[in-house]
């Protein structure tokens, strides 16, 4: 498995679309080579016998911490909107979701 790794430009373009990223042809070329190298490196994990080994996703023994279900005020609207790229009348403004619509 370590040797039969063939990442194609189409694979990289597909993963990019899942990640909401887009590359031009030059970038796609460069990233395909680099990601192939990285995948080769991480494939060395196949040398390790992990049969019946439990995966570790977090090192704490803490599972969850619940709080009382009480409404609290958290940040005022103006402050929250201050970092938004585009606002109107106290709302965040975004472009039309459907291509054919003319106005937001």
């Amino acid at each position: 498995m370590t040797t039969e790794n063939n990442i194609t430009k189409a694979d990289v373009a597909h993963v990019a679309s899942l990640a909401k990223l887009k590359f031009n042809d030059n970038e796609l070329e460069k990233f395909t080579g680099q990601i192939e190298d990285i995948i080769d490196m991480v494939n060395t994990l196949n040398e390790v016998d992990t049969d019946n080994v439990k995966p570790t996703f977090n090192v704490t023994d803490q599972f969850n911490r619940m709080r009382e279900d009480v409404a609290v005020r958290s940040g005022d609207k103006e402050a929250l909107l201050a970092n938004a790229p585009d606002t109107e009348n106290g709302f965040i403004r975004v472009p039309a979701i459907l291509d054919e619509s003319e106005e937001a």
């Binding site: 970092n83 975004v94 291509d99």
Partner: peptide
Amino acid sequence: GIRYGYRADDVKSLEDV
């Protein structure tokens, strides 16, 4: 690109954003 931080210019759709 919606609530804070950078948003690209000249975007036509939400996917574009």
